[in-house]
Design a protein around this nucleic acid. Structure first.
Lengths: 108, 108
DNA sequence: CGTGTAAGGAATTCTGACACG
DNA sequence: CGTGTAAGGAATTCTGACACG
């Protein structure tokens, strides 16, 4: 829906900057990746690249960790949230389909 | 006006990534800074940090350079554009002031 | 003027491992 | 399990300079 390619999701931030931005050590950031909580891309030579979105994710993770939530649980929650979002999307699509079926597809 | 703190202007991208994103050599990127066309921030240890906005600026600069426009002229244009923008802002403010003067300041 | 390149050094990042609890 | 740390190496970035045109 957004008309912007969105800066939010472009993977362009190196781990050092992410560390500054989140206050997390690089060790922690890499560990959360190992536990599949975060998915940076890699540059040609293998350096991790994160998005602003990833940075926000990491902050949420850090908050949960402070509350004592284990990485495994955080992961479960993330997967659950993702599934719910997919369902919502799906319902939306369904609705759109019905509208088109009754009122026809708008052209031009 | 924008409600977002905006990812667009946060200086978080290192020069290597900027080079990939723009296709410019690091040499050129540093030179355009020297000519005051671009203003990266610095990390604690002195590494340059750019924003998405800077990346877009650099692409525009690259386009003008290809047309043979000299850095000096590009700079003049940038300053002119900036002044115009400030004037537009100023007129806006003026207008808002008059509206408030006539209709009173809205509270709550 | 605009850009390339070699130079030397400092800072960054990476991985795999050992440590502790 | 979650995190720190020392280790060694490779890649990154920085500055100032010389080159060419």
């Amino acid at each position: 829906m957004s008309n912007e390619p969105s800066y939010k999701n472009r993977k362009v931030i190196t781990i050092g900057i992410v560390s500054e931005l989140t206050g997390l050590t690089e060790r922690k950031i890499r560990y959360y990746e190992e536990r599949k909580l975060i998915f940076p891309e890699r540059s040609a030579k293998g350096n991790r690249k994160y998005s602003f979105s990833d940075v926000e994710q990491l902050i949420e993770i850090a908050n949960k960790r402070e509350e004592g939530v284990q990485t495994f649980e955080i992961r479960q929650q993330m997967l659950r949230d993702k599934r719910k979002e997919a369902e919502r999307e799906s319902r939306q699509q369904m609705l759109r389909g019905q509208i088109n079926a009754r009122f026809g597809i708008q052209r031009e």
